[in-house]
Design a protein around this nucleic acid. Structure first.
Length: 239
DNA sequence: AAACAAGGCAACCGCCACCGG
DNA sequence: TCCGGTGGCGGTTGCCTTGTT
């Protein structure tokens, strides 16, 4: 879906007179984006409040420092990655969330190009929705256990299926040497994340993933929704 | 075609930790 | 030690798009 939401207004509709004299709020215009981009490329990140003051005086960017920072981090930063959350990313988010909880910024550090806001939105709109559909409290131990013991293995299964379909369409190519799931996460998604607490996943699950996830994190660009109707039926059979 | 509902996501808000004076 | 400024973080809001009736 091509959606700019509150994030981008057409610059042909300028703010009204009252807003001209005050700090602006709401959607950013293309002109504002350009001003911020130019300023950051010239002066670098950080010191957002002084940036806002300076830019407000000199180039007419009437935004708070907080607003500038948020716009830069979530939208304008050159390494921001857009598009669907891939199956591998879904798996990683589930895994990390089970260990870290709602520490979105920490989770985001393990997914290059993804912002904490994006991951948070993904969790709230997709994961919580399906938890509700299955009548689970998303904060319960029961839900966490099911994510680890049922949903994550299912995701791995789907990754495997996707891989097989992928390889049927492409000439075979050698994979990197096999490594564990956790190793693959640590090495494929730079920058290197801080050490995680010991995995709570059953050993069978961890070993299950070994050769399947390793070496393929960057291959599959196009994700799909986490749970289809078939998935939910399948899960219900497992319970 | 219009009205409505649901989904998705950018942006805001309030709190907190950190740092320098 | 205190205090104000600043930036980071998680929760929440509100608007646009898409799907359905």
């Amino acid at each position: 879906m091509e959606f700019h939401g509150r994030g981008l207004c057409d610059s042909a509709t300028p703010p009204n007179d009252q807003e001209e004299t005050d700090l602006r709020r709401g959607p950013w215009t293309r002109d504002e984006d350009l001003l911020l981009l130019n300023y950051v490329s010239a002066h670098g990140e950080g010191r957002w409040n002084s940036l806002a003051r300076s830019a407000g005086l000199s180039i007419g960017l009437r935004r708070t420092g907080k607003s500038c920072r948020l716009r830069w981090l979530n939208y304008l930063r050159p390494d921001v990655r857009r598009g669907n959350i891939t199956l591998e990313e879904q798996l990683l988010i589930l895994d990390l969330h089970s260990r870290l909880g709602n520490r979105w910024s920490k989770i985001a550090r393990h997914l290059p190009g993804r912002t904490d806001n994006e991951i948070k939105n993904y969790w709230r709109t997709r994961v919580q929705k399906h938890a509700r559909q299955m009548q689970f409290d998303v904060n319960s131990k029961q839900f966490e256990d099911m994510v680890r013991s049922v949903w994550m293995p299912r995701l791995v299964e789907r990754i495997r299926e996707q891989k097989q379909q992928h390889e049927q369409k492409k000439p075979p190519r050698s994979l990197e040497s096999s490594c564990s799931y956790s190793e693959s996460v640590e090495t494929q998604l730079s920058p290197p994340p801080p050490p995680l607490p010991p995995a709570m996943a059953p050993e069978s699950f961890v070993s299950d993933v070994d050769d399947d996830v390793c070496g393929r994190w960057m291959e599959l660009e196009q994700g799909e929704s986490m749970w289809s109707v078939e998935d939910i039926l399948w899960l219900q059979q497992q319970l």
